[in-house]
Amino acid sequence: MKLFSSNAGYFFKEVKTMIRLNLFSNSLTIFSTGLIFFILAMIISGWWVSSRVVDVVQKEAEINVYLDDEILKNNTAVIQMVESIKGIEGVQAARVVDQDEAYNRMVEILGKEASVLSKFDDNPFSSFVELKINLQEIDPVLEKLTHLVGVEHVRDNREVLERLRNIAEALRVVGILVVAAVGISTTVIISHIIRLGISNNKEQINTLRLLGAPELFIAFPFLLEGLLLTIGGGILAVSLATFSISYLYVQMAGPLPFIPLPPVKELVFGMGIVVMSLSAVLGFVGSLLGLVSVNNH
């Protein structure tokens, strides 16, 4: 351990010299790994956002039951309806959301855009019965609700949820493929540049061996070089992705105010940690591979 701590300055200087002597290949490596990690960062972020949205929407799995106008006119009939809905197996709670509450909810959802509602003379929303149910029993509950007399129609968000789930799943699969591709290409790129560095420094390596330097001491600057290159690529990717995500958030906030996006800071932070640790691991593995492949020759 002392070998490393007391020589830290030397190792970094060696890496600096190696990068300087081969500036073009090294810059190209940082740039290409940066680009690869950027794609990874965007896919990971997309997957994360979609799975977060699915989580949120799933928790709010809601069923709204709209009643016939006939029944709505009669308060006791409405109360009776609510009671019989409560009696359905799987329904946990049911309550009436009246016109005013429905209106206020929409105002809250629209936020700044709520002014469009003032264009209506009358309250455009009708009252409905809101249900809380066991998610597993959503199908039989819906089945029974549609057969209930006095129910005009039933609205549920199963379809939206299903579509979101598909997107999240697709992004997950693509994400796994991309991680594999990123892993392979990064290790190949890094192991190549390390091999190049080793062959450029053959004489120096040989001299160090003649002076009795341990193999680990000789190899360490190369490991460090690979690590610094991928970390450089990672930093490039994270900055680029942070910029892109912030831009996309601004773009989406306007037309899609309903989507419960995770906070941008949380997303960028999580993505940054994943990309940076992956870049460090791949840099280490890549340079190790480069070292081993040279040693076996």
């Binding site: 003649l210 002076l211 009795g212 330097a213 341990p214």
Partner: peptide
């Protein structure tokens, strides 16, 4: 032998 070389001062 690598270890031994640390005790040697070589002038090539």
């Amino acid at each position: 032998i690598r270890q031994l070389r640390t005790s040697i001062g070589p002038v090539f």
